[in-house]
């Protein structure tokens, strides 16, 4: 298989592409079902996210008259989804071929992770809806708050790994995994614990989950940037969100706990870890609290995760 074909497979089939889509939708289905059970409801079938997408696929996408540009309005969800499929291809998944170094390293991944947020901002802005505009400003405020900590978290892990490997910084995700397989997981490295805390808060903010679902708050701004989207275009945003949950979970596992058995068993364990983290770390938390206000969320991020991330980086540099 030529290199180009291998790259294409990794973006379109696995670990990006179909694999990430299926896993993301399964995570969403499990999340909805588990949340329902915690709230005393029966909840939807596990395949509900897929049914929703099929239904959206048969609908029309309406472009509002107020939209500044039809093209931008329709292309934005596609850009968001493609960026996430690409990002999923960068995640080392045990039992699958390691991501090609030609695709990029962790810095590329951090950039790619910002694209869906920017896409939502563009989508809210281009729709011409005031609710979209409020969603835009909220998404921007939230991104400014959480992007800083995630860059610092990644930098802390890269520098820490680099120091141990006798380099300045290790940016290859595969290298970071290999280092932990030899020297033990970063999860057990006290120097990186502040970084882990910062990452734990980054996760719901990046995915727009309660308490940080502020830009898309249904009862406040009617889903904000998504208010004017319908049909397949809305479906693309939903797909993007599903893949994003895989990417961010995968990034977390890669940075802090990539230790799984060799071979296909490793893949099974890795998938199980995804589900357990999703249900305990996200679902159980989100049903237990309500939404923050945007000013509260920004203040919160500037207070705790940013400080934790800076502390982590400082400790890594000093130690």
């Amino acid at each position: 298989m030529s290199t180009q074909a291998a790259l294409l497979v990794s973006v379109l089939a696995f670990p990006g592409g179909l694999f990430a889509l299926a896993l993301g939708l399964a995570l969403k289905g499990a999340d909805r079902r588990f949340a329902a059970r915690l709230q005393g409801r029966v909840g939807p079938p596990l395949l509900q996210p897929i049914y929703d997408l099929v239904k959206l696929g048969f609908k029309r996408t309406m472009v509002p008259l107020t939209a500044t540009s039809q093209l931008v309005f329709l292309v934005t969800p596609l850009v968001a989804l493609v960026s996430m499929l690409y990002a999923a291809a960068l995640i080392p998944v045990p039992g699958l071929p390691a991501p090609s170094p030609q695709l990029g390293n962790v810095l590329v991944l951090v950039y790619l992770l910002a694209i869906p947020g920017v896409a939502l901002m563009v989508a809210g802005s281009v729709s011409g809806s005031t609710y979209g505009a409020i969603g835009f400003s909220r998404e921007m405020a939230l991104m400014l708050a959480y992007e800083g900590p995630i860059v610092l978290v990644v930098a802390a892990v890269a520098l820490r790994t680099g120091a141990a490997e006798g380099q300045f910084a290790v940016l290859s995700l595969t290298e970071i995994v290999r280092h932990q397989q030899v020297h033990g997981a970063n999860l057990f490295d006290p120097v990186l614990w502040p970084a882990l805390i910062a990452f734990v808060f980054f996760y719901p903010a990046n995915l727009g989950i309660v308490p940080f679902d502020i830009p898309e708050a249904e009862t406040e701004v009617l889903e904000g940037p998504l208010v004017e989207y319908s049909g397949p275009a809305l479906g693309l945003f939903k797909l993007m969100s599903a893949v994003k949950s895989v990417v961010v979970l995968g990034l977390g596992l890669t940075l802090f706990f990539p230790l799984v058995p060799e071979g296909p068993l490793g893949l099974v364990v890795w998938l199980l870890e995804d589900f357990v983290l999703m249900l305990i770390g996200v679902t159980a938390v989100r049903v237990g609290i309500g939404r923050m206000r945007i000013d509260q969320a920004v203040a919160f991020f500037l207070k705790w995760p940013l400080v934790a991330a800076i502390a982590s980086l400082a400790v890594v540099v000093v130690v």
Binding site: L38, V210, P211, D213, A217, T219, E220, V287, G290, R291
Partner: peptide, 8 residues
């Protein structure tokens, strides 16, 4: 509670 996003 619904309006504050606290569905549970």
């Amino acid at each position: 509670a619904h309006l504050t996003g606290f569905e549970t």
